[in-house]
């Protein structure tokens, strides 16, 4: 047991791992050194996204956005400008006459947020401002589909932008249609599991973190709203790099997933623990680290809490369940998750 006294002079990452009841799994821990607690645990957090927004009950994206931006705010001494793609996050935060953002924020279009952010970065560069940093953010539709060209361009130019994709696996704002990030077998309004159809097809979809890695940009990471320490660490790490960076955050959507609002964090956790949502980091195109699964759970435990997968759990669809299990297995192998 290494259970030594905390020492405030030692940076967090060098502190001896110690056991403080919940360790670093809860948001805060009254026994941890203050500097090692999460941004979200502090009363002084930026609340970049503040109360009064109109996200659904239990919205994972609202949570992920505040987590990520507040972490970035701490990492940059509150020097963040954010650009936002069209989508839930934009609509529920800025309906005239109310904005829920407390940071400089701009929304232009659905498919251009990466380019708008590049423009902001270009402006800062022209002005010689090296302290203000730029974040682009959008949902998976705005990122993997309509915004993909601009995103790839931003990666290609290695513009000094952190792009954060809040991945809830579909076009939820427009009424739950399939995106290229919709997981196989998921029911959406455009991939109904009718007859023998499995919902979203098993042979489709793209995994943008891998595509981002193929651009060999300085930093790529995946995160999940259930593991705040991991998420904040990745955002803060991303801010230590210059150039294009990409973080994809898994954010459950009670509306689109057909899940209980109260279970958003739980589902986020289960997605990771069953292997369907791999958490990892990559630098310059190479995998550098992965977050290990703490307690592995069967994928069906995760699926059964979501109505979008209800058909998969029917006896006649065990082949679909097997195929999903295989995806989890493959992820675990590919990203060293256990």
């Amino acid at each position: 047991m290494s259970n030594q006294d905390s020492n405030t002079d030692i940076p967090c990452e060098q502190q001896t791992v110690k056991f403080y009841q919940t360790g670093t799994f809860t948001v805060g821990n009254r026994l941890l050194d203050e500097g090692c607690r999460t941004v979200q645990a502090t009363a002084e957090r930026a609340n970049s996204l503040d109360s009064g927004h109109r996200a659904c009950q239990g919205c994972g994206q609202a949570l992920g956005a505040r987590y990520a931006l507040d972490a970035a705010m701490r990492a940059t001494d509150n020097k963040i400008i954010a650009a936002n793609a069209t989508g839930c996050l934009e609509v529920f935060t800025t309906p005239y006459p109310e904005t829920a953002w407390s940071i400089p924020w701009v929304h232009s279009l659905f498919g251009n947020v990466a380019a708008v952010a590049s423009g902001i970065a270009a402006s800062l560069k022209a002005k010689g401002d090296t302290t203000t940093r730029v974040i682009a953010q959008g949902g998976d539709g705005g990122t993997t589909d309509i915004g993909f060209g601009c995103l790839s361009g931003m990666f290609d130019r290695n513009d000094d932008v952190l792009y954060i994709c809040y991945d809830n696996g579909g076009y939820m704002n427009t009424g739950v249609q399939r995106s290229s990030a919709t997981p196989p077998a998921a029911r959406t309004a455009t991939t109904m599991p009718v007859g023998d159809n499995p919902g979203s097809s098993f042979t489709t979809g793209k995994f943008l973190p891998a595509i981002a890695m193929a651009h060999e940009i300085p930093y790529v990471a995946t995160a999940s709203v259930h593991d705040l320490h991991d998420l904040e660490r990745k955002v803060e790490k991303a801010m230590t790099f210059r150039g294009a960076r990409y973080i994809q955050i898994n954010v459950p959507c009670p509306l689109g997933w057909g899940s209980q609002p109260a279970l958003t964090i739980k589902l986020s956790r289960m997605g990771v623990e069953c292997g369907l949502v791999p958490l990892f980091e990559a630098e310059n195109g190479k995998l550098t680290d992965s977050t290990k699964i703490r307690y592995r759970i069967p994928v069906e435990d995760y699926l059964k809490l979501q109505r979008r997968f209800a058909h998969v759990l029917k006896p006649q669809n065990t082949h679909q369940l097997d195929a999903i299990r295989q995806i989890a297995e493959d992820n675990i192998k590919r990203y060293n998750l256990v």
Partner: peptide
């Protein structure tokens, strides 16, 4: 599309 979008971002940034 990116070109005008960069203009939008840069102009909004002053």
């Amino acid at each position: 599309f990116a070109s005008m979008s960069l203009c939008i971002g840069a102009s909004a940034a002053g």
